[in-house]
Simulated scan of single mutants.
Amino acid sequence: MDDIKINSLISFAGYNWRVLDIKGNAALIITEHIIDQRSYHDAYKDITWADCALRKYLNGDFYNRFSEAEKSRIIPVMNKNLDNQWYGTKGGEDTLDKVFLLSIEEVVCKYFGDSSSNLYNPNKSQRYWFHKKDVNNSKRIARLESTVGVWWWWLRSPGRFNVRAAYIHGDGNVGIQGNNILKGNASDGRCTGGVRPALWLRLDM
């Protein structure tokens, strides 16, 4: 495992994952591509990450696709779920997750370059997302695995209201106002954002 470095790609459980962080013998990894399209929740009502359907799916049906050997390498982590920095929308209680989505802070300040100035010092014209000229946008762009095109993907953080969740736009911009957790413009009426699961993986096994 000596060749595993931050920003390198590794294969695990049939997916390609990008290494975002390494602490001791564990690595934080996220799927390189968007591997699914789902709504954030299964009902249109105020919700936070702690109680949403997408968290239940990732820590239930999705997690159970892993073999027992693979599960033994996944390290549960206590995630902080902060309030939305622009709108003050409640992020909800901290959660113990095996598999999770990244938060606004993680994609903006830590793992895809540092755009914290946009997060903590919005100007009056910023209501929905960050600047189109943010130099880190290109680092957050993700391709939908089943196609050649890019797509937007969910974050676990709340949007402007608790019927919205933050997301990364197809051009890599940060949609801090959020998309609707369920209602959308698709023919079936559902707002199906991209899913890029993240997890902490034990490396010494």
Rank of each mutant, 00 (worst) to 15 (best):
178 G>V: 09
169 H>M: 13
178 G>I: 08
175 G>Y: 02
182 L>E: 05
160 R>C: 08
157 S>A: 06
170 G>H: 07
175 G>K: 03
169 H>N: 15
159 G>F: 10
159 G>A: 11
154 W>H: 06
172 G>K: 06
177 Q>W: 10
166 A>H: 02
158 P>G: 04
170 G>K: 09
167 Y>N: 08
172 G>M: 07
153 W>Q: 02
179 N>H: 13
165 A>W: 01
153 W>G: 00
173 N>D: 13
166 A>G: 03
174 V>P: 00
157 S>P: 07
170 G>W: 05
162 N>A: 12
165 A>Y: 03
170 G>M: 07
162 N>H: 09
168 I>T: 03
158 P>E: 02
157 S>W: 03
179 N>W: 10
169 H>C: 14
176 I>L: 15
174 V>L: 15
173 N>V: 12
178 G>Q: 09
182 L>N: 07
173 N>Q: 15
157 S>V: 06
178 G>S: 09
164 R>P: 02
178 G>A: 13
164 R>F: 13
167 Y>G: 03
177 Q>A: 14
174 V>I: 15
155 L>C: 07
156 R>N: 06
161 F>V: 12
165 A>I: 01
157 S>H: 03
171 D>I: 08
183 K>Q: 11
155 L>M: 11
161 F>R: 13
171 D>T: 14
175 G>R: 06
181 I>D: 00
153 W>S: 04
161 F>Q: 13
168 I>E: 00
180 N>C: 09
168 I>K: 01
171 D>A: 11
172 G>A: 11
170 G>R: 11
166 A>V: 04
172 G>S: 11
176 I>V: 15
170 G>V: 08
178 G>L: 11
180 N>V: 04
175 G>C: 04
154 W>M: 09
175 G>I: 00
174 V>T: 11
157 S>T: 03
179 N>G: 14
158 P>C: 04
182 L>D: 01
162 N>G: 06
154 W>A: 05
167 Y>D: 08
169 H>W: 09
173 N>S: 15
167 Y>T: 03
176 I>C: 00
182 L>A: 06
153 W>N: 06
166 A>D: 05
154 W>G: 02
175 G>S: 07
166 A>F: 05
177 Q>F: 12
164 R>L: 14
181 I>A: 05
172 G>R: 02
176 I>M: 14
177 Q>T: 10
163 V>N: 14
180 N>A: 13
180 N>P: 00
157 S>Y: 02
164 R>E: 13
183 K>I: 12
156 R>I: 00
161 F>D: 12
162 N>M: 12
181 I>H: 03
160 R>A: 14
178 G>H: 07
183 K>N: 10
167 Y>A: 13
155 L>Q: 03
155 L>P: 01
165 A>S: 14
169 H>T: 12
182 L>K: 15
172 G>C: 08
174 V>R: 05
169 H>F: 09
183 K>C: 04
158 P>Y: 01
159 G>L: 08
167 Y>M: 11
174 V>G: 01
165 A>R: 00
183 K>L: 13
165 A>Q: 04
172 G>H: 07
161 F>S: 15
158 P>M: 00
160 R>L: 10
181 I>N: 07
158 P>L: 04
170 G>F: 06
164 R>A: 10
160 R>H: 12
172 G>P: 08
160 R>E: 15
159 G>H: 04
183 K>F: 10
180 N>F: 09
154 W>Q: 06
156 R>F: 03
154 W>L: 08
159 G>N: 10
155 L>H: 02
155 L>W: 04
163 V>T: 15
182 L>W: 01
161 F>N: 12
173 N>E: 14
173 N>A: 15
